[in-house]
Simulated scan of single mutants.
Amino acid sequence: MLTLRRLLAAHEEAIIETGTAWVREVAAVDLAGRPASETRALVAESVRTYAALLLAGDPRPRDAFIERVTTLRSNLRFRISTLLRGFFAFHRALEPILARDSVPHQLAFDILRRVDAACFEAAFLTADTYARKLHEVVDTAQRELLRREKLAALGGLVAGVAHEINTPLGVAITAVSLMQDCVDELSHAFAAGGLRQRDLRDGLARAGEAGGMALGNLQRAAGLVTGFKQLAVDQSSESRRRVALGPHLCELVASLAPLYRRGPHRVDVDVRAAVLVDTYPGALAQIVTNLLQNALVHAFPEGHVGTVTLSIARADDGRVELGCADDGVGIPPRLLRRIYEPFFTTARGSGGSGLGLHIVHNLVTELLCGTIDTESEPGRGARFTIRFPADPGA
């Protein structure tokens, strides 16, 4: 490698300049908006990594350079071919110098063969490292989108439950006020000495009715708060706990009443089997919420009134089967194969994010270790069937 050492010492600047010009030319799409000085600095560093590897057998500068340049580019719109060309620039710049310096053909061939081997090895390492970092970027983005979707769903439920709680609390306040009026009337009559037995009996009866009405509505409000509290805890965490799936689904659908109660559609629950599962209630809550929202938004266009049925059963293979079926307009075949794609939606103008079913698919397949199947025909509704083990991850 004495010849290569001599060539690098004599022509390093020329190699860097030629390599920079070639990379800027062949990767113009990625580099048009980047300063030439940046490209030159990276090419110069790659030349030094080759010198360390080929002349001293030290791969550490190359590995450090690959780590740095892939990190630098992983958050930008950069094609992997641009990164790889940065390593092949050394060969492209060295070849004319070998010819110009009249290096013997066999020696020049041996030098370029060793350079090519180093280029390919660096290219493979770069591709693997860059792909890994891009996956990390995508995974981070998906986790953030999932977190935001959870918070958005929870925020919607907060508003809906607040509206639901206002009704029983308002009735309870009215009933308590009525009871207070009855007590005041009896107190005044007693103080005036004109309290008759009939007045006492009627007043106590009205006060009792008002008290019963207040108690019933306060209990209803307390039930809503308790159910929502458990739902809020479940949706904001991924802890596992043991639940009776049928009653849990009924409670969940009741807590989701603000999504459908003010509309014309009906939501039914069909529990065909008593199923006890050790699972993630938060994931189940989000799955049911997204499936129900998806049906209410997409299955029933204006003027079409329908029913959504959520069901619990045991599959033939012993797994739990959670179904969501509607009698709506159905899903066209051309859209059916795309419904789980992230950001794909046919209701963009109506607030659809295209993430609901994508999140459902991820939760079912990754967290619950299950499967999800979809059946639909235009005009005959759609059915989503989720099957998962009663003890995911066991």
Rank of each mutant, 00 (worst) to 15 (best):
D184V: 05
K229P: 00
D181E: 11
G203F: 02
R143G: 14
L218G: 01
G246A: 10
A56K: 14
P389Y: 10
G19Q: 11
P392W: 11
S376L: 03
L291A: 08
T374L: 04
R261F: 06
A9T: 11
D373V: 14
V288S: 04
R73Q: 10
A21H: 03
V329H: 05
Q293H: 08
V43H: 00
L7Y: 08
A257S: 13
A295I: 02
G212P: 00
G211L: 11
S311P: 07
G263M: 06
V137D: 03
E238C: 02
V297C: 01
R48Y: 08
D63M: 10
E144N: 03
A28L: 12
P61M: 13
R73W: 10
G379I: 13
V171N: 05
E251Q: 13
R5M: 04
V43K: 04
A390N: 03
V23M: 09
S239W: 13
A56F: 13
V137M: 09
G354R: 13
L291N: 14
P59D: 06
L125N: 03
F343C: 00
A28K: 06
A89D: 08
L218Q: 02
D139L: 01
A21P: 00
R92A: 14
S102K: 15
F124K: 08
Y340D: 01
E149C: 05
E95Q: 06
I80G: 15
A28N: 06
V297W: 05
V360L: 02
P96W: 15
V69M: 03
A325G: 10
A254F: 09
L151C: 04
E45K: 12
F228V: 00
A32I: 01
E375V: 11
F388Y: 08
F124W: 11
A44Q: 07
R68P: 06
R242A: 09
L276G: 12
G381E: 06
T71N: 13
L249W: 02
D391H: 11
P342H: 08
V158R: 00
V103F: 04
L145Y: 12
R92N: 08
L53V: 01
A93S: 13
K133L: 12
A162R: 00
L83V: 02
R196A: 15
A44E: 05
V23P: 07
S311L: 01
T70S: 07
A9I: 12
P392N: 08
S353G: 06
R79I: 00
V47M: 15
Q142R: 14
Y130G: 01
R5F: 13
G193R: 12
S311W: 01
R206N: 08
D116S: 08
